[in-house]
Design a protein around this nucleic acid. Structure first.
Lengths: 331, 331
DNA sequence: GCTAAAAATGTAAACCTTTACATTGCCTTT
DNA sequence: AAAGGCAATGTAAAGGTTTACATTTTTAGC
């Protein structure tokens, strides 16, 4: 692996000049620049990003971090695509780490981000008060939170109107005549879960329907918990005629539970999930969902981060995107 | 951000000693070690990974790269989980990049890996002869290829017996009495696609059935192409009574096409996909698939890489895992 | 208590950049 | 023709770590 020194020797100039050619090619006279470029080419020289980052303090390192709680959730995967597209278009590399909804792991990867000195980090915080994220933000690392709200600091944020999405979903069920609507809520301690639950409750209240605590179960956003809790809800007497499920994976789980109980969808149970799935059409039946614009969330977050990198003094931005109810055949 | 020097000063020792405490705490006497650890704690010291990597040449940098062609494909996402679990258990950070099946992008990220000087890289090569990967491998970077074979170098590999999986799938269809079996093959230029096609053909030949070129379509592994090609195949006259689809996303697409044509599965068309899906149970109908042990592929690859990091002189290892036919209701 | 060996610790160079500051060389002005 | 100014280039330090080698301290054997 050739270094600056090798190039400098070959081009008969100093390393400073080579460095200048690489970075701000202005202060170098044409002839020298060409000689250096020729030497770089001949040696197949590639700047060492590690050394560069060690030296460079606040600069653009063209590296951006994304920490996701669960890569197997298509919602997050779609966010990743959005971020990546913007990053790549701007010659930024995106490195992705998986925190697995595990605070220790998140802290570990936040530290990796700091230590690798990425330019900025995008992440859905694991908890509403996430000390590790806050600490990194306070240390001056540009951070954009997505999907979930973080309390305790003013940080760039892109989120979706979860309340609205849930409200519309439940309203839709009400309009279809459902009076007993169950909720499988998402992990507590997540702003999204709470907002969706609030949307559910308010929609019921607006329809003058009772909010029955026994119709509300709290899951962990995983498929298995959706299955288990749907099973519980559907064993109730009288059982709910409709279920609103607060996340995509749990919705699939609920569907499995319904199939296991051999109930007909939507005749015996209606089902609405939060988050779309690329194969929602192919499910049995095609699933009605509240679609979050996940790709746009990712794009917007990356753009926001890039903007902040350009000007650190910008006030914290807050973008709230609107979800959309996609009606298929499950209710 | 405190540095080695700060810790050294505070503990009244030299930076070398501090470094030793951090790395191989053997050569340091108990008392000193405690003093250093105390100082580190008080200062909240965290080693600077960038500086560390700059210095450390062949050593363990505790950073490992994974480049995946498509994060939205659950198969790859599952591999990522496998790799991540092993990495994390060994205090390695895993950084993940998305090449999007795009050679330019792959080359870009390979360069990022080199430049960030990760300890090693795991990836399914985008093409069978992937010059960029070969070049990086030749430069001494430990590489483990997964899922797909790379020609032109002896490199650690973890793959799945694609031939066998496809053979069993088609054999199963034959046993059920199907005589006209269509194939939606995967992207050309991928070893997996070819092996699966070979399995399909040999199974037909073994059953003394003709291999009809018009029953074979080549897709790009994306959902949309599965939909389109299934539509084409099912418009043929006589149309195939069964489809074997060479990847999960295309299988979902095929399912959509079948639904659009209002054909009954499995009565009118049987369907088998390659790669399982976490929600295959909830599809209409639950999809029969050849399940690849993706998680194990990831785990094995990471373990292989870690092993190689321990001893560079090891001969290239080659692990072939067996897929399993999971019979559900689509045939 | 002295010496030699072993163990612990310290010193300084190296890794590859970037960049402040110094130097060189050329051009313009009087 | 000399001086001053400016543009181009060079020199060297710094960034935080690891590590070969040098030095100091401890231990053991007598």
């Amino acid at each position: 692996m050739s270094s600056l020194t090798d190039v400098a020797k070959r081009a008969h100039v100093s390393i400073a000049t080579v460095s200048r050619v690489i970075n701000h090619s202005d202060k170098v006279v044409e002839k020298t620049r060409l000689a250096v470029q020729k030497a770089m080419e001949e040696l197949g020289y590639q700047p060492n990003r590690v050394a560069r980052r060690l030296r460079q303090k606040g600069g653009r390192r063209h590296l951006l971090g994304l920490i996701l709680p669960d890569i197997q959730n298509p919602f997050f995967a779609e966010i990743a695509r959005g971020v990546e597209d913007v990053a790549y278009a701007n010659q930024f590399a995106m490195i992705l780490c998986i925190s697995d909804e595990n605070p220790t792991k998140e802290a570990f990867y936040l530290d990796v981000m700091r230590a690798e000195s990425v330019d900025g980090v995008i992440l859905p915080p694991i908890a509403e008060r996430d000390a590790a994220v806050l600490k990194l933000a306070q240390s001056g690392m540009p951070i954009v939170t997505v999907d979930r709200t973080l309390h305790g600091a003013s940080i760039d944020t892109v989120e979706v109107d979860n309340f609205q999405g849930a409200y519309e979903a439940v309203e839709h069920l009400v309009k279809l005549g459902h009076k007993r609507i169950g909720l499988i809520a998402g992990r507590a301690n997540l702003s999204t879960s709470r907002d969706r639950q609030r949307g559910y409750e308010e929609a019921l209240i607006a329809a003058k329907l009772p909010v029955r605590p026994d119709y509300i179960r709290v899951g962990d956003n995983k498929q298995a918990s959706g299955r288990g809790l749907a099973d519980e809800l559907l064993s109730l007497n009288p059982r709910p005629t409709a279920l609103f499920v607060s996340n995509n994976l749990m919705a699939v789980g609920a569907l499995e539970a319904i199939h296991m109980k051999k109930l007909k969808v939507p005749q015996e149970v209606a089902l609405i999930g939060f988050d779309d799935l690329p194969w929602a059409e192919a499910l049995d039946p095609p699933l009605t969902v509240v679609r979050q614009p996940a790709y746009e969330v990712g794009r917007a977050a990356a753009e926001m981060l890039l903007k902040r990198l350009g000007d650190r003094s910008l006030p914290a931005a807050w973008l709230r995107l609107r979800p959309r109810l996609i009606i298929r055949n499950s209710c």
